[in-house]
Structures are given as C-alpha cells and as structure tokens.
Amino acid sequence: MTATLSTIIVDDEPLARKGLAIRLAAHNDINIVAQCSNGREAIEAIKTHRPDLVFLDIQMPGINGFEVIDALIEQGLPMPMVVFVTAFDQYAIKAFDVHAVDYLMKPADDARLAQAMDRIREHLQSKTDAEHKNKLVKLVSDVTGNDQNTILEELANKQTVSLSQYSDVLPIKDGGELSRVPVNTISWIDAAGDYMCVHTEEGTHILRKTMKQLEELLDPRIFIRSHRSTIVNKNYVQKFCSQLNGEYYLVMNSGKELKVSRSYKDKVKQAVTQ
C-alpha cells in the first residue's frame, strides 16, 4: 500500500492554490491537510499538521517563502519536503534546483507535476531527510547572505541569482583532525609567518592560508582588512579609536586592541560605523 503524504499548499493567489489542489487530486498518495494564503499561516499550519510535503510559493507579501523556511529552522520544527512554486522562469529559478526537492513554475501542468511527484517519491525512498534539511539551511544561509529583495528582483527580471559565495563554516585542519569553525564565531584573524591565527570565542586555531585566500572565503561586508596582516569581524568591534600621534586602532569586544593601518583607516571607519 502506498504511503499517504500529508501536504500543505502555500500561495497568496487563490486560483493558483485551487489549480494545484485540483491537479494533486489525481495523485492518490497526496492528502492536502491545509491551504495557506501567506507565510504566517504557513508557519502555523506546519506547526499544527507537521506535514510531509509543502508546495511553497516564493514571493508572497509579508513573509516570503525563504522566510517561512527560516522560521521553521529557527523554531526547530521538523523540516518537510519542500517544492517551490513560482512564476519566475526556469533559467532564473535554476539556482534553487539543488536545494529543494523540486520546483514548479506557475501554472504547473500535469506532466511537470507528475515529474515532481516522481522526485518526491524517490526522495522518500532514499531517506535523505537530513540531507534535504541541510540543503534548505544552506539556501537560507545563501539568501540571507544577500539581500532577499535583491534576489527576488533578480528572479523577477529573469537574471541569474547571485547567491552568496561565502561559506558559513571555515574548515581548519590540525594534525589529523579537521575542525569546522563557524564563521560567525571568528572575531579576528592575524598573520604569523606562513600561518594565520584564527581567533574565536572558544580559542585560537592555526590555519595555513594566505590573507588573499581568506579574503576570498569570507564575506567582505562582515570581515574587514584593517592591516596588511589583520582581518577583523566588524560584529566584534566595540570601538574605533585614534591616538594623539595619529595612529588608529580598534577595540574588540574582548578588550583586545588591534592596530589599523593608515591605508585601511577610511575603509575600516566606514565599515564599523554602518
């Protein structure tokens, strides 16, 4: 006997919800337990019903589809399988192909919906729920790494989506061990010969990379070059100070003082005061 998938449809357009519900009625393993007209309703319905599957519109007033997923993660709710439903064209939406179980363009025809259902059933058989959730977490990380409105505008204009290229984890190898250091815990990094000292809330890690390589890995809106041998996380900066002799320095939340080179002074001052 085929397992029934409890399903929620989320779309701010009543006709879009109705049309998808009618097409899904042809699939015996789908049981629609709720239909939601906005993101807030969706979050509450997912809390209540704990569905197996959600067809989720991306662009909705108030809370959009990205923010719905973000809320589920923040609240620690079980992550359903997600199929994005969107009016954006295939070229633009391709960026999300690797994150969701699938995506559908409005209006979804029977053949394309059947293909999506096949992927959903394959996903169930592969038992990769954890992998699916990780992909959705990565999607949220990517989206919040950029401005959500910018991404939605890129989609609407049929442009390639410029998801953030910056990782939220910095892998650091120490002997035979590999540590995955959350980037948001790094307060500053300084050079020590051929190595980098990565200072975090928990302690210091040693990494064999160049400053240039690290700058390519870290989001420049958060990590600022303050000296030729130092990168700081602006979220850990308490004060930007000047001395009588004309030198500048940063005071970190830990009390640590870091010198700011004259060549980086203006850029650092602008970044930490934004």
Rank of each mutant, 00 (worst) to 15 (best):
residue 207 L to V: 10
residue 207 L to R: 07
residue 207 L to C: 13
residue 207 L to I: 13
residue 208 R to A: 07
residue 208 R to M: 14
residue 208 R to P: 00
residue 209 K to N: 11
residue 209 K to T: 10
residue 209 K to Q: 10
residue 209 K to D: 10
residue 209 K to M: 13
residue 209 K to H: 04
residue 209 K to V: 01
residue 210 T to K: 09
residue 210 T to M: 04
residue 211 M to G: 05
residue 211 M to Q: 11
residue 211 M to D: 01
residue 212 K to Q: 12
residue 212 K to V: 10
residue 212 K to I: 09
residue 212 K to A: 06
residue 213 Q to I: 12
residue 213 Q to H: 08
residue 213 Q to M: 15
residue 213 Q to D: 15
residue 213 Q to P: 05
residue 213 Q to V: 12
residue 214 L to F: 06
residue 214 L to G: 03
residue 214 L to M: 14
residue 214 L to I: 07
residue 215 E to P: 02
residue 215 E to F: 04
residue 215 E to M: 14
residue 216 E to C: 11
residue 216 E to I: 02
residue 216 E to D: 13
residue 216 E to Q: 13
residue 216 E to L: 13
residue 218 L to R: 04
residue 218 L to W: 06
residue 218 L to S: 09
residue 219 D to G: 08
residue 220 P to I: 08
residue 220 P to L: 09
residue 220 P to Y: 10
residue 220 P to R: 04
residue 220 P to K: 03
residue 221 R to T: 08
residue 222 I to K: 06
residue 222 I to H: 10
residue 222 I to W: 04
residue 222 I to Y: 10
residue 223 F to D: 00
residue 223 F to E: 01
residue 223 F to K: 07
residue 223 F to M: 09
residue 223 F to A: 06
residue 223 F to H: 08
residue 223 F to L: 03
residue 224 I to W: 00
residue 224 I to K: 04
residue 224 I to Q: 01
residue 225 R to W: 06
residue 225 R to A: 09
residue 225 R to P: 03
residue 225 R to V: 12
residue 225 R to G: 11
residue 225 R to T: 08
residue 226 S to Q: 01
residue 226 S to Y: 02
residue 226 S to H: 00
residue 226 S to D: 00
residue 226 S to P: 01
residue 227 H to G: 11
residue 227 H to V: 02
residue 227 H to S: 03
residue 227 H to P: 10
residue 227 H to W: 00
residue 227 H to I: 02
residue 228 R to P: 04
residue 228 R to Y: 13
residue 228 R to I: 12
residue 228 R to V: 09
residue 229 S to Y: 06
residue 229 S to P: 12
residue 229 S to M: 07
residue 229 S to H: 05
residue 229 S to F: 03
residue 230 T to N: 13
residue 230 T to C: 11
residue 230 T to L: 10
residue 230 T to R: 08
residue 230 T to M: 08
residue 230 T to W: 09
residue 230 T to I: 12
residue 231 I to V: 10
residue 231 I to K: 04
residue 231 I to G: 04
residue 231 I to W: 05
residue 231 I to R: 05
residue 231 I to A: 07
residue 231 I to Y: 01
residue 232 V to N: 09
residue 232 V to Y: 02
residue 232 V to F: 04
residue 232 V to G: 02
residue 233 N to R: 13
residue 233 N to T: 15
residue 233 N to L: 15
residue 233 N to C: 14
residue 234 K to E: 03
residue 234 K to N: 03
residue 234 K to L: 15
residue 234 K to A: 01
residue 234 K to S: 05
residue 234 K to T: 12
residue 235 N to Y: 11
residue 235 N to F: 14
residue 235 N to W: 06
residue 235 N to D: 13
residue 236 Y to A: 06
residue 237 V to P: 07
residue 237 V to L: 06
residue 237 V to I: 15
residue 237 V to D: 08
residue 238 Q to V: 05
residue 238 Q to G: 11
residue 238 Q to T: 14
residue 238 Q to L: 12
residue 239 K to D: 13
residue 239 K to T: 03
residue 239 K to C: 07
residue 240 F to R: 06
residue 240 F to Y: 15
residue 240 F to P: 11
residue 240 F to W: 13
residue 240 F to A: 05
residue 241 C to I: 07
residue 241 C to G: 01
residue 241 C to V: 11
residue 241 C to Y: 05
residue 241 C to K: 09
residue 241 C to D: 11
